[in-house]
Design a binder for these strands. Structure first.
Lengths: 148, 148
DNA sequence: CTGCATGCAAACCCTTTGCATTGGG
DNA sequence: CCCAATGCAAAGGGTTTGCATGCAG
């Protein structure tokens, strides 16, 4: 994904430069398919690239989100989390959030059923509220196995 | 709702005092059935009760959330929003959020279909992930009619 | 070369907390 | 009366911004 002309082209076409920090940050997501906070990205990055600052991480996360390469989530714990926008996401994977320990569980089961349902709902909502829907989030809150 | 023995009892049973600020804040939600941020509650309150401080608003919002009288939402704009936990919510009303102007549209259409779907999904998820689900949020992001 | 991107630190914004004071039960 | 609840101001934590410097194109 990274060295590929696709990635470079994606940046060039959008009028952005493919810099080292941007490549490195994208790499963090490729190697860590998780819901990373800005600080987590910064720390993971710091091992190999101690020179990259937190501000750059925030600016890059914002850029990548705008470019659609990553998705931004807010689980209500006061910090944003980001995730690579790959097939996993496209397959409508959603989240279970433990309100006690903060653990986040992905699930992509029931994807077909869910996809169909969401699709229908989006169509109806778009029509009724003249709303152009571009994305959605489904969060279930509760207690994970250990916290019960 | 407010003067009712029900409300007072609800506080007493939980070991809390039904103070003037708490009544006033609950009243704000009753009169403004919207997704209010802490600051909005504070400002609405300020007209009639200029003495009530922002910290008390935050503390009370937290208390009411724990008591289940209001719900807390996070739409990703960096501030929490709160809403009265009345029948409207119980009827599974969800949200469309405009990513440009921040407008939030409630919808409670398709409630039956949705309720059934969510219920099924919750059951399956609970079983598979041993997760005790207590609430859920469904957010659709996009552009409202005016912002398109 | 030219100007976008970066690093650093300060600024910002929302939220929480410490502490003396108030008022509900 | 007593202790939970309040108000105020200060602190906290995540995110953004200003500005001089660096590097991609």
């Amino acid at each position: 994904m990274l060295g590929s002309p696709w990635c470079r082209g994606r940046f060039r076409d959008a009028g952005f430069r493919l810099t080292l920090p941007r490549q490195a940050i994208l790499n963090v997501f490729i190697r860590n398919p998780k819901h990373l906070s800005a600080e987590e990205v910064f720390l993971l990055l710091h091992k190999d690239y101690p020179g990259i600052g937190l501000a750059t991480v925030y600016r890059t996360l914002d850029l990548l989100t705008q470019m659609g390469l990553i998705f931004k989530f807010d689980f209500g714990d006061g910090r944003s989390r980001y995730e690579l926008a790959d097939e996993t996401i496209k397959a409508h994977h959603h989240h279970l959030i433990c309100t006690r320990c903060g653990r986040i569980i992905d699930y992509s089961d029931f994807a077909e059923k869910e996809k169909k349902f969401i699709k229908e709902l989006e169509t109806e909502l778009s029509k009724k509220y003249k709303f152009k829907i571009s994305s959605h989030q489904v969060h279930f809150y509760g207690l994970c196995e250990e916290c019960q």
